[in-house]
Design a protein around this nucleic acid. Structure first.
Lengths: 199, 199
DNA sequence: GCCTTTGTCATACAGCTGTACTGTAACAGA
DNA sequence: TCTGTTACAGTACAGCTGTATGACAAAGGC
């Protein structure tokens, strides 16, 4: 096989270009030609590596997701391992604070939401999204059950609330309605309401 | 002046067509030609009444918003006027339950979010969105201050949480992740946590 | 009765889109 | 050294988009 090229690296270069474009001009400005120009390659190269446009967007989301998970792992390792701390780190990881998490948040809000909107009329597919939300719910629920919770706190009900709350907080931080600190404060404040303080 | 035509009615026919199309195939399927076909008129008529496409979308959002407000007013009048009940009605009005509110929720999620995404790189404009969110926050905050609240409940912090929570709940109901009853339950449960029960 | 305005249609246009096709330089294995 | 595969570029194509232009029927004011 001739001309050994690191495919993964090349693909990442291109999906990075997608991220930069989205960050600048929104998803609407992400076209094959724009991506090619941004990455300094030919249009066909983008096709060559991703085939279709949906393939490009899917790969972008995947790459962004991978980096988000890596970031999250780092955060969790920095905690004391208690349910309260781990859950806090998990929830806060969805709040865009630096360039990386801003990109992640934006890409998810863009591609993801677009997919949801497009697949809204017909109830087929839309599966991946549900499982993603379900995973978030499950994670939150799992940490909540680890406790220690205050009296009359229902893990299932609170997991639903938190799972619905976090994307909204992230979005408001993203568009500058509130600051990241306010979002953090909201999360901490609510977690204080759920968890018993340990002595 | 010849050929008297009810402009408002005509415009509403066209924006209704936009809603139906969005409900079926997402915002991506809303084009001048599709709208014209759906409404059974010529392409140019859509231009004639709205000029540009942005004008069409803006008018659609406006019409949807008007009907949402009417619906909300009805709900509020059905309450006992207490802060707890009024706030509950206000928050629940954002949860899509019937065809009307489903359309409202979807149109906002679509047009609105798209606008936010598009205007994300450049921090200009984006004003209208902020004021909308601000209005929601203000309304929630106003009702919270009416009380009676439990001890140690901060209206500002809780208004932030609720304002971020509601869109997420609405979206999950929209895509079938949770039921409307679950969303209602989440809202009621949380309001119970904030308000003192009156005897 | 005529004329101007208004509502409506049909069609044209330039631009952009995703995708397909053709060509070609470089390198690996024979 | 030859050959087949790989990584890329250039360009063509069909389709769709929003928008502009031109024509035409109808109806009220003079």
């Amino acid at each position: 096989m001739p001309k050994k090229v690191d495919h993964d690296a090349r693909r990442r270069e291109l999906t990075d270009a997608v991220c930069r474009l989205t960050l600048r001009g929104g998803l609407g400005s992400v076209t094959f030609r724009q991506v090619a120009a941004e990455a300094g390659v030919s249009v066909n190269l983008v096709q060559y590596y991703f085939g279709t446009k949906q393939g490009l967007l899917d790969a972008t989301l995947e790459h962004v997701g991978e980096r988000s998970i890596e970031r999250l792992m780092g955060w969790i390792e920095a905690t004391d391992g208690s349910a309260r701390e781990v859950l806090g780190a998990f929830l806060k990881s969805f709040i865009p604070v630096d360039e990386d998490s801003r990109v992640a948040s934006l890409m998810y809000l863009s591609i993801y939401t677009e997919g949801v909107i497009a697949a809204m009329g017909n109830p087929d597919s839309n599966e991946t999204r549900k499982t993603e939300v379900q995973m978030m719910y499950d994670t939150v629920h799992e940490q909540l059950t680890r406790g220690p919770l205050r009296k009359n706190v229902d893990p299932a009900a609170e997991a639903t609330l938190l799972t619905a709350l976090i994307p909204g907080l992230g979005q408001y931080v993203q568009d500058g309605t509130i600051t990241a600190d306010t979002a953090y404060g909201t999360i901490d404040h609510h977690l204080d309401r759920l968890f018993r303080k340990r002595s």
